[in-house]
Structures are given as C-alpha cells and as structure tokens.
Amino acid sequence: MTEYKPAYPGTVTRYVVVESYTVTPADVAIRAYEVAKGVMIKENCFGLIVMGKEEDVDRVIAEVRKMDPTHIFVKDRGFPPGDARRCRATLGGARPGFHGIEFEMGILPYISNGLEKTENLDLSAVPAPAQAAPERRLDVYTLKKMIDAQEP
C-alpha cells in the first residue's frame, strides 16, 4: 500500500453557489479574486470553490455574499478543488456531488424568496409547514392480492 500525504492539510474548502438574476458566477469570481489574499479560488458553472485557511475563506465568502445575500449560498466540501479523486476532468461525467446541488438548485428560488420575505417578518405569524402524511406501507393482504393477480 502507498503512503498517503494530504495535499492541503489544515485548510477548508467551501462551495459558493450563485442562484441570482443580477449576479453571475463570473462577477462573484472577480470580486473574490479582489479580496483573495492567498485563498485558492476556482470558478465553475454554478459558482466558486474557495479553499484556504478557515478565517480567510470566511472573509472572502462574507465579502462575496454582500453582492446578493439572499441568492448566494454556501456549503462545505471535503475535497480540495481539482482533486483527481473527485474532479470531472479526470473522472468524466458530472462530479458525484453535483446531482445533489443540481436537485437543490431547483428549490433555491423558493428559499431566496423565503429569506427576503422573512427578513422583517414576525415569525410567530407564519404558519408551521404542513407535515406529509405518514408513509403508507404495503400490507401483506394487498401484496397477496397483487401476487394472485399476476398472470401465470
């Protein structure tokens, strides 16, 4: 077995996801480069990957968030940018975690709207979200009926 030496120990990596109609990932990247100071920044189709010391990354993120606070979202990432174990440049196809972000990108407009509307709102006046009906499991009698209904 080969010895493993981590490439960037002691750093954090975060995604900045831009879901805005006024700011593009390129605008956010330019602003991030302006305040980078030793932080590694990679621009991609949905935003940025920012890597560096935690306090530096938080500083850059706080700065770019000001561009459109309710439409810029941030999440942690385990791997550094361009890591061969995760990067689509070496693996081909979408990066494994992209599908999760893609799914949530469809919901982000509702979240942005919610963040804007709840900013100065009395939260106790907002009704609690409805809970889904409990999952209905297939009972044994229905299963038996389905088996019997099968063509021989």
């Binding site: 919901i107 407009p109 509702y110 979240i111 709207n113 919610g114 963040l115 509307k117 709840t118 709102l121 939260l123 106790s124 907002v126 009704p127 609690a128 979200p129 409805a130 809970q131 889904a132």
Partner: peptide
Amino acid sequence: LELEYPKNEAEGVQFVAAIKK
C-alpha cells in the same frame, strides 16, 4: 426540526421561517 422540501413560494416562506425560528 423535521420538515419537507418546499414545492412553491408559500411553502418556501414557511420552510425558511420554521428553520429561522
């Protein structure tokens, strides 16, 4: 806190308000 993903704008407001609270 247990909830579901919002499916429209009204649910989005409720979702964010519940988490914020």
